[in-house]
Nucleic acid binder design. Structure first.
Lengths: 211, 211
DNA sequence: CGGCTTATTGATCCGACTCAACGTTAGTGG
DNA sequence: CCACTAACGTTGAGTCGGATCAATAAGCCG
């Protein structure tokens, strides 16, 4: 990541709802998020959409386009977001100058595969409550890793986006959030969330405590 | 792939049910399948399993271990399977001798991400019938690409494995196969499958015809 | 041949979806 | 700055797809 940042060519800013790239487009850039947040999604020929990830600063987008030379997913800013772009065409050239760059990129992709495996596990095998509990815990950990409060944060994505990502209906997201709130595990106000009883939330998600 | 094959160190054979590697193990080898088939899976702390892929000759396994130095999934032979192994420790060394090797590996990983995105779409957004129809079509295409019959083939995985992979119950797999059979779209006998009406099957999967 | 795994089919139940109505907030332009 | 509007969020009622539980059949292998 730091390497990628050091060879950045351009910085760009996107507003809420703007596309960074869309599926099928020619692979021109890799994107490193500097600030804000981005959702990535794929869709079926008949128009159904699956959100594949929410991305925060420090994360790199677009590498899955490498194999076929075109993006397989689309990326859209959830709020005002600034990114660094690296021209795909220069990647080979850069890799020759910086031998460890390719290794960095492989690590990123390897990590992406790992993360996708987690999401598949969640989509295939977990109940709606477990999904949402795990989702909240995952957010909490990501914020903690960036030295933000792990118990108080703002969601940049809508209920609909959360539901889509987790493979459940928007209404179910609301209902379960209400249920968690009634159980004293969380408090929500619109997009602001407070995690009150992490322990209990982890029990619902049936996860091991953080490693 | 051809490159990987040219630098292969060891060939190994696994029998049905044997593990190639398991989650958490140290990342020692990359595996290229020469013959047979392999399933990969991940699991939750409480023991639920999600199969993430069925793999056939020509495919490479284990690259997602790169990021953390340990496998994130397990791989198990579905039948007698022969593989080529490359020592992970020698990858750096090899990459220096063969500059395009890393690029090859990135392409493989990039392709893996793409494939995982498809599975997420399937797990999150499709009905059981659509899943199974798409599964059969996908198999058909993979066999066709290897010059086997796209309409007649043997499954190396059980109904339970299929159901797990698709995120549905084993019983539902059976029921829907029966339904497809009654509709004259396929014929099954145990693990042997004949696709009779591909057109109709594609309609059920709501897919575009093959590109 | 007998025990074991895999596949099939039936009956029942429940979690989550859909449809629908309504409340709330943020963003827009006058 | 305020009114208006569109997007977002919440809640309820009713339905259904697919899970689960249970029993039986059909291969498979020693």
């Amino acid at each position: 990541m730091t390497l990628l940042e050091s060879i950045v060519k351009r910085k760009e800013t996107y507003k809420r709802g703007q596309l960074l790239f869309r599926a099928g487009e020619r692979f021109d850039f890799i994107y490193a998020i500097r600030g804000g947040s981005v959702k990535t999604s794929v869709c079926t020929p008949d128009g159904r959409v699956q959100i594949t990830g929410f991305h925060i600063p420090g994360e790199v987008l677009g590498l899955s386009a490498l194999a076929l030379g075109q993006y397989s997913s689309e990326a859209r800013a959830l709020e005002t977001t600034s990114v660094c772009r690296v021209e795909a065409a220069r990647l080979d050239e850069l890799a020759q100058k910086i031998p460890s760059l390719q290794y960095q990129m492989m690590k990123i992709m390897s990590g992406q595969i790992r993360q996708d495996e987690e999401l598949m596990l969640l989509l295939g095998r977990r109940s709606a409550e477990e999904r949402l509990a795990e989702y909240l815990i995952g957010l909490s950990r990501r914020f903690a890793a960036r030295n933000f409060s792990p118990t108080q944060f703002n969601l940049s994505m809508s209920r609909g986006d959360i539901g889509n990502y987790l493979g459940i209906a928007e209404e179910t997201v609301c209902r379960i959030l209400t249920r968690f709130q009634n159980a004293g595990m969380i408090a929500t106000q619109r997009r602001h969330v407070s995690l009150i009883d992490l322990r209990q939330l982890e029990a619902v998600a049936r996860m091991k405590p953080a490693a």
